[in-house]
């Protein structure tokens, strides 16, 4: 059984020096490499990715579609389709217990009860033929072996806690009678039923309207601080997580290109990709006019560019970037890390 060791590998890059460092490390992903062996070739979904999450902390994994931002948590939750997916290297530890290659009993005891997950589309995650209350109660009946009556009571209580009005009445309704926001609340209730230590939210607000997005983010952050959970938010939307994230990891083409405290990232992004991404988001105030944009399109994960995967789109690329892939290294005078040869020059 592996324990949390402090090595000098890039896994430590993310061990934050912020105020939450005294808390226990709950989940730790180290040098994780996931490949998809497809007919067209090997897809390098994630390469050498490392992150960890402490009690009471919020980590945001940011990236565009195809960046591999969801892959590492899918590996954690055992949701990778195998085959074609292969965990080609690295480790995933939950409170010191190695999950890669662990027995299915070990995995079952952790997934769902210790680490829970909610998804982008709550409609497809709820079974349309059962009442919502029944589905939440089922988690109690199976996970905690409660009686039917007790489980129903707890389900209604939990629905109230996640802000579903009239929970007694709502518990008797079917998923299609819920609005998108209410469904997401029901999903959150279900994920919280077994009081997990880590909650993973994969694009939790993407399918929702802007006024509802704000409500769901508020709810997630409230529950996180009440339960002192570790919260992992995976999103492409730089705006929705800005106020709640403690730390961020930015993904590009299957690699982490920048990581560090959220405030530093938003105030002064270090990696050229992060800079381009942040400056291409249109704002609700300030000057309008031509938007900054990152030229070109994200690379195919089957044929990654040589050297730094971002170099064909990078406005600052130099010869070295074409041949050599930069490692995630510490940024001077700052707690973050960036995978760019020119980090210091560009800041």
């Amino acid at each position: 059984m592996a324990t949390v060791t402090s090595s000098t590998s890039s896994a430590d890059c993310l061990r934050s020096g912020s105020d939450s460092s005294s808390d226990e490390v709950l989940l730790e992903v180290q040098d994780l490499t996931v490949e998809f062996h497809t007919d067209d070739g090997i897809v390098h979904a994630v390469s050498n990715m490392s992150w960890d999450i402490n009690e009471g902390e919020t980590l945001a994994i940011l990236g565009e579609s195809g960046s591999g931002k969801s892959v590492s948590v899918q590996a954690v939750m055992g949701l990778l389709p195998t085959p074609p997916a292969v965990i080609a290297g690295g480790s995933i530890r939950y409170r010191g217990t190695e999950l890669v290659g662990a027995s299915s009993d070990t995995l079952r005891s952790i997934r769902g009860s210790e680490v829970a997950m909610i998804f982008q589309d709550p409609l497809s995650a709820l079974n349309p033929v059962y009442r919502v209350g029944w589905q939440i109660a089922e988690t109690f009946r199976i996970g905690k072996r409660m009686s039917r009556k007790e489980a129903n009571g707890r389900a209604i209580e939990l629905m109230g806690r996640v802000g579903i009005p009239n929970p007694e009445q709502r518990a008797r309704q079917y998923p299609h009678q819920f609005s998108g926001g209410m469904r997401q609340r029901a999903m959150i209730a279900m994920a919280l039923a077994l009081e997990p230590k880590v909650l993973i939210a994969d694009e939790p607000t993407t399918a929702l309207d802007v006024t509802v997005q704000a409500q769901i983010m508020d709810l997630l952050s409230k529950i996180q601080s009440e339960n002192r959970m570790g919260l992992i938010l995976i999103t492409h939307d730089l705006g929705v997580v800005a106020s709640v994230a403690d730390r961020v990891v930015v993904m590009y083409a299957g690699r982490a290109v920048e990581s560090g405290p959220a405030d530093d990232f938003y105030a002064k992004p270090a990696h050229p990709y992060s800079q381009g991404l942040l400056s291409s988001v249109p704002k609700i105030s300030g000057p309008t006019g031509k938007l900054n944009s990152i030229e070109g399109t994200p690379p195919s994960v089957i044929e990654l560019p040589s050297g730094c995967a971002f170099h064909p789109r990078c406005p600052h690329s130099v010869d070295r970037c074409h041949s050599q892939a930069p490692e995630l290294t510490a940024i001077t005078d700052r707690t973050g890390h960036s995978a760019c040869f020119l980090t210091e020059e560009l800041l």
Partner: peptide
């Protein structure tokens, strides 16, 4: 306008 790089996403 920006010319996207050739063949990046084409197989």
């Amino acid at each position: 306008v920006i010319h996207p790089p050739e063949s990046s996403s084409t197989v």
